[in-house]
């Protein structure tokens, strides 16, 4: 650690000032509209109004539920995939990592349309289900929460896998064998050794996935439509159709608070594990 404050500030301030000037200040001014009373002064009535409406409650809970589900699913699948990838030999590892990153390169709009093909009544999934005798008539998967869940998971899973790969690679190589020698089962190894040592990756990946799911627009709009509104689709309606910038800033602020809360929660979960470990 270097101690020179002036140097530190000189290095960090340009970026901070830039982000504050071109981003934070305008956004804060816009968000403050949501707290302004029509008669002057400040109020949170726009927020109490928002949450007293039963449609908004439904949409809020749905958004929270779907984003949380996508985050949990991507963490579970992400750990499995990241484990598998780091255990490969270096050459194969690079190629498989490349395949994982690949979907990030293709426009989210195009990917969303591909799901219409896959999940449709005559799509691959339904054909496979019918061939396997899981269902007789084609299932309706499109335009439902399930479709949004699948679309979002595919959109953001790569971010989780990449965060976890680098976290797993930085883990001491002998941590797992050591725990096994000491008699821990695989579940304990994961819970008490791997999770605490990879919490940084989980927090970064989890925040990216959760925030991404909260603020995705195209995927819920196309795979869900207005049957399955999410906060972001509601926000878009307010801006683009109703020109109601106050209502829009209320929704935006709720989304921001949600993603901050998720970040803090993830950090908590990860640190709580850590404490347990140090006590044990």
């Amino acid at each position: 650690m270097f101690q020179n404050r002036a140097e530190a500030l000189a290095l960090a301030l340009p970026a901070a000032i830039f982000a504050a000037a071109v981003f934070l200040v305008p956004v804060v001014i816009l968000l403050s509209d949501g707290f302004r009373a029509p008669t002057g002064g400040w109020t949170i009535s726009a927020y109490t109004d928002f949450f007293s409406n039963s449609l908004n409650q439904t949409v809020f809970l749905r958004t929270l539920r779907l984003s949380a589900l996508v985050t949990v699913a991507s963490a579970v699948i992400g750990y499995a995939a990241a484990f598998a990838i780091v255990s490969l030999e270096p050459g194969a590892k690079g190629k498989v990592t490349g395949l994982v990153v690949l979907p990030l390169m293709i426009s989210p709009v195009a990917r969303t349309y591909a799901w219409i093909v896959i999940l449709g009544r005559t799509g691959i999934v339904n054909q496979a289900f019918q061939a396997l005798g899981i269902t007789e008539a084609p299932l309706r998967i499109l335009f439902s929460e399930t479709a949004i869940f699948i679309g979002l998971l595919q959109l953001f899973l790569p971010l989780m896998i990449i965060s976890l790969i680098s976290a797993l690679e930085n883990m001491p190589k002998d941590a797992i064998p050591a725990a096994r020698v000491l008699g821990a089962n695989w579940f304990q190894v994961f819970w008490k050794v791997v999770l605490p040592l990879t919490k940084e990756g989980l927090v970064i990946g989890g925040t990216l996935v959760f925030t991404g799911s909260l603020t995705a627009y195209i995927t819920p709009a196309i795979l869900g439509g207005s049957k399955v509104l999410m906060l972001e689709t509601l926000l878009y309606q307010q801006v683009a159709v109703s020109n109601n910038f106050v209502a829009a800033s209320v929704i935006a602020f709720i989304l921001i608070v949600m993603s901050f809360a998720a970040n803090i929660l993830l950090k908590r979960v990860a640190t709580a594990r850590n404490k347990q470990r140090s006590q044990a």
Binding site: T215, Y217, E232, I256
Partner: peptide, 18 residues
């Protein structure tokens, strides 16, 4: 911060205030 603010709000805020 720019990661967590919905893009549509960023666009609108920059347009109106910058």
């Amino acid at each position: 911060a720019p990661i967590i603010v919905p893009g549509i709000i960023v666009g609108l805020a920059l347009l109106r205030y910058i």
